[in-house]
Amino acid sequence: MIVVLGEGAADDPAPALAVGLRRLGEPVVLGAPDTGAPDTGAPRADGLITVPCAMASADEVAQALARAQEAAGPIHAVVLVSAGAVATVKGELTALEAAEWSERVEKPLRRTLACLQGSHRHLRVHGGSLLILLPTLSLVGSAGFAPWAAVAEAQRALAKSAARAWGPERVTVNCVAVSGELLTSNGAISPDRPGLPPLSLATRPDMETDVAAVVASLVTRAWAGVTGATVAVDGGVWMTP
């Protein structure tokens, strides 16, 4: 069973990923502060089983995963989808107030650490996969998104450290880099760098079909030998190392 952790709100990308994984036949539970479910324990309108999880601490994440396990069986993968909607807002760094910095950078990083630590408590028992979805802009930079890029590059570094530490327990930790447009609800404001280079494929990968298919594959035994890596699912835009 795969647990997808995100915001859970209507404009959050986590439900789209979870729905896509379920269509591929994966048992999925969505963990989020705002589950979008009508009542505790009831599935959402889109059929997703949910557990409340604010990712406030490792204990809280571990407890949420225990509830997910009770609801849908043993967990073999946890996917952290977003750094939180607030992290993705565009703005010049010099215009950012201290309180906003804390909300957009420090809070998402605390959630990331809690997610990793809490997930590890479950996955170390039988092995498994941890994935972090992050924007390609962290690999190449993007004006107006320095805080988000900082969060994402910290997540990548943390993923590498976790991969080294937990590899002996057969726990893999990888990152999936996607267009920032798939991770933000900013609408017309594209988080990607304008102008260059062009998309190599005919269409930009979407979350529910294309990214979900890659995630579903990455958490299988086929990828047991890959850890600490970043896989870009961006349609061949940047082709970074």
Binding site: V105, G144, L158
Partner: peptide, 18 residues
């Protein structure tokens, strides 16, 4: 330590563009 030093790389790349 590695995480925050990684964050600085993300900050630097985006600030370079900005």
């Amino acid at each position: 330590y590695g995480a925050v030093k990684g964050a600085l790389r993300g900050l630097a790349k985006s600030l370079a563009v900005e």
